[in-house]
Write a protein that binds this DNA or RNA. Structure first.
Length: 419
RNA sequence: GGAGGAUUCGCAUAGUGGCCUAGUGCGCCCGCCUGCUAAGCGGGUUUCGGGUGAUACCCGAUCAUGGGUUCAAAUCCCAUAUCCUCCGCCA
């Protein structure tokens, strides 16, 4: 939910933002007029209601004769109040949907345009020179790390088993991510992955992502596509107090995505799957600290990528490719040798107060007033990283070198083909 | 799956149709008193929205949520959610 007061003050900023996203500029004016309608309906209701209340008070203390005449009047008034209230309900819901139609205000520095209009901020690391590289599926299968055939047998396309050292490799990576998160002041969390509609709604995923989400109809619950959802909802309806430093959480969870509309895309291997595991960073902070916190989250992501010894680049995602809640987003993309291109491994978004306004997360500002907090999220490791690790660290003899940082967790420095 | 109980301000509680403008205690904030501290004394303290780009003032909503009854609902009725206790089933 955007800041309505800010929109009233400066509608042009929101029109510009919509333009940058390639979204509807008219939506801003639709919201403004819905707001005006709602406020005028609210005022007539409140006036009538005030009259009704004061009459009610008179009746309580009136003598019988007086009471009778007063009752005559209140009866018609009760009708009017009811009608006015109905109108308020209607304008409120129109206003509400008009409000939800507007995504977060795009940050000033973010590039305008669509998916391909990102700006490359930097490239880090050396792309490995591999003659005839094998892809991660071939390597993973040969080394007994990965079994997509049996995954499909059990659960269908886009499911897989991580087996043996493959399972250990993922656990090692996620453990390292949690360890790093704890060292940098995050509280580790293992959250619920089934959530109620309010949690999904509050994080803004039921809008554009609705098709992507698994829904359990019998229980009215959703399977989360990221632990961002339960982490954001963790403090919903709460006041976090002074919030002198960002409140940071690192969630470890399985993530579930329907991948509707991606038929034929990335069907090979585990680049795009229905279920994967992830360590996700999530911060609550003061709005004025959000930009600095965003840089921090990005730097933690880069630290993890460097520990995995992966060549990567950082992109500043264009406005049209931002999620509903994000005002700015940086992705880190790792080099994938067999594809000859960079693929997204992490994504960090600054949601400013957009998400927190929906979830009703507040803090106490310097004047002691309640104000809406800012939220940010970022990826620290996911199953997809295994793709980049296997492909970049493959060696001519068919083995895969284990990044130094993972060796203590894995107990070995190389993954050999099984004999 | 079944039976019962609960849900009121940050916390604990009072409140069974109009005198509830929701009381009290704790906590918190301001002040007084005190050579310090504690105690004591006085005052303030739900949240959200509108009037209204306003620390004052006025109005409305808010007693888990949504409906209903009524001129009038924290209070009565219905549904839902959550928590607790017990019974059944069970990985």
């Amino acid at each position: 939910m955007i800041d309505l007061r800010a929109l009233r003050d400066n509608p042009d900023a929101y029109r510009d933002s919509q333009r940058k996203r390639g979204a509807s500029v008219e939506a801003v004016d639709a919201l403004l007029s819905a707001d005006a309608d709602h406020r005028s309906a609210l005022q007539s209701f409140e006036t009538l209601r005030a009259e009704q209340k004061s009459l009610g008070k008179k009746i309580a203390g009136a003598d019988p004769d007086e009471k009778k005449t007063l009752l005559e009047r209140t009866k018609t008034l009760a009708e009017e109040v009811k009608a006015a209230e109905l109108k308020v309900t209607a304008t409120a819901s129109a206003f509400d949907s008009a409000g939800k139609a507007i995504p977060n205000l795009v940050a000033e520095g973010a590039p305008a345009g669509g998916e391909d209009d990102y700006i490359v901020l930097r490239e880090v690391g050396e792309k490995p020179a591999i003659e005839e590289p094998k892809d991660h599926l071939e390597i993973g299968t040969a080394l007994g790390l990965l079994d997509t055939e049996r995954g499909a047998k059990t659960s269908g396309a886009r499911f897989y088993y991580l087996t043996g050292d493959g399972a250990l490799l993922q656990l090692a990576m996620l453990n390292l991510a949690i360890q790093q998160a704890v060292e940098t002041g995050f509280t580790p969390m293992i959250p619920p992955v089934l959530v109620r509609p309010e949690a999904m709604e509050g994080t803004g995923f039921l809008g554009e992502h609705a098709d992507e989400i698994y829904y359990l109809e019998r229980d009215e619950m959703y399977l989360v596509g990221t632990s961002e959802v339960p982490l954001a909802a963790y403090h919903s309806g709460e006041n976090l107090g002074e919030l002198t430093a960002p409140r940071r959480y690192a969630g470890w969870s399985s993530c579930f995505r329907r991948e509707a509309g991606s038929y034929g895309k990335d069907t090979r291997g585990i680049i795009r799957v229905h279920q994967f595991d992830k360590v996700e960073m999530f911060s609550f902070c003061k709005p004025e600290d959000a930009e600095a916190e965003h840089e921090k989250l990005l730097s933690y992501e880069e630290q993890m990528l460097q520990k995995m010894e992966l060549p990567y680049r950082v992109i500043d995602v264009a406005a049209g490719d931002l999620g509903t809640s994000a005002s700015r987003k940086f992705d880190c993309e790792a080099w994938v040798p067999t594809q000859g291109r960079y693929r997204e491994l992490t994504s960090t978004s600054n949601c400013t107060t957009f998400q927190a306004r929906r979830l009703n997360v507040k803090y106490r500002d310097e004047q002691g007033k309640n104000a809406v907090a800012a939220t940010l999220n970022g990826t620290l490791a996911t199953t997809r990283w295994l793709v980049a690790i296997l492909e970049n660290h493959q060696r001519a003899d068919g083995s895969v070198a284990v990044p130094k940082a993972l060796q203590p967790f894995l107990g070995k420095d190389v993954l050999e083909p099984k004999k």
